[in-house]
Design a protein around this nucleic acid. Sequence first.
DNA 1: CTTGACGGGTGTACGGCGTACACCTACCGT
DNA 2: ACGGTAGGTGTACGCCGTACACCCGTCAAG
Lengths: 232, 232
Amino acid sequence: MVAITTQADAAQPRAPLSRGRVLSTAVALADEGGVEALSMRRIAQALGVVPMALYKHVANKNELLDGMIDVLVGEIDPPARDTGWQTAVRLRVLSARRMLLRHPWASEVIEARTKARATPTPAVMAYLDSMIGIFRAGGFSLDLVHHAMHVMGSRLLGFSQELFQDSPGGEPDPDAPPPEEMAARYPHITELAMAVAHDEGSVVGSGCDDQFEFEFALDLTLDGLERLRGTA
Amino acid sequence: MVAITTQADAAQPRAPLSRGRVLSTAVALADEGGVEALSMRRIAQALGVVPMALYKHVANKNELLDGMIDVLVGEIDPPARDTGWQTAVRLRVLSARRMLLRHPWASEVIEARTKARATPTPAVMAYLDSMIGIFRAGGFSLDLVHHAMHVMGSRLLGFSQELFQDSPGGEPDPDAPPPEEMAARYPHITELAMAVAHDEGSVVGSGCDDQFEFEFALDLTLDGLERLRGTA
DNA sequence: CTTGACGGGTGTACGGCGTACACCTACCGT
DNA sequence: ACGGTAGGTGTACGCCGTACACCCGTCAAG
């Protein structure tokens, strides 16, 4: 058996590797397994390459995280054309929210990296800029759009924070709190949770439509802004 | 020279160590140096103790972070008595915000830990519970207080997210972006920043009163909720 | 055809991390 | 006097990010 291997031999071992391939592999790895399980070594392994090879395409892990953020922001739909400012903002924010639901680790990473840098990632900057553009095109004064950006705050990138999600999602909670103790300690939460569970049909399932809640909050904010816009 | 040392010898080397001392030392270390520089080994060093000693008082690093969160939540003022729901919520949220400004790493840690657990930290649960209590005492229906908690969203714990802070705060940004390129790439941001800088006096200083922006957004949300409350 | 630069993958190594596990020691109630 | 227990110690393991030297294929200039 001849040992000489031509470059057409067998299946070609691996694609040439590039910044784009590194970033999308990193995003995929973070999607499954969370961002805390993301390491340079694991990314390299997933790409069939030695860890140090990555450093020819990203400067270091922080810069890699920045690159991942840009990939995510790139998934947000561009602004709608030929609509009012309100539906344009609405559609954009809802698109951002869909992105965040696809990548649950995103908001944490964006927040952490934005705080560590002097300025947000260029892609985030562009996103914010175009959002301001929508408000301006809708007739908002500079002052009012300034306020509006602050009011939208976390919602601008679709964060809902979901401080208490009824559906577990996290670790199965080793020390499960007995429901009756729950009720004693947090009467209001329990009362609310019971009410939510009992109407809207089945007791199983969260009974809390996160999507509706998000849009309710968003529309309340938007209506308030529209009212201000009319009076200013 | 006799080698025997009594326990009253010299200055007593160190205090007895306790969960409370571990947590407050960890909080202090995070305040100066950020949460990414917080390690079990550093906490131990600051306490004059070997790293493994900490594990007699906290189960592991995640549980330590949870404990730190509880310390922070304990810094939030209790609800005001003898006021309307609106000022009670307002004061409480503003108190939470002051806590977050004291500990800039807090929101990131709370978000990360809340996502990793099935349920928020007990202290956070209690905070949310008492917040619901304020709404309920103010005459909100269960449905409406449910919506309200979602609307308040991140603001409930005082997050403003500050996606673009005019004052740097982070690393000095090694590759400084030239302002004219800034203006070309992000025209709306620049236009807004210029407007904000030019009125309200001096060009130095951010010209953007974060506190005012936060309260403006908060009051807009609260007024919207009050309006809904009247019609429902 | 030789050569030298260079882009990109490799191998080794270092210091720091969280923490499992065995140990030692002072104090306590019996 | 003595066994238990609470709390501090020492050692060690496996993972992490990444600095640094290397090596090899391609390609342009001589």
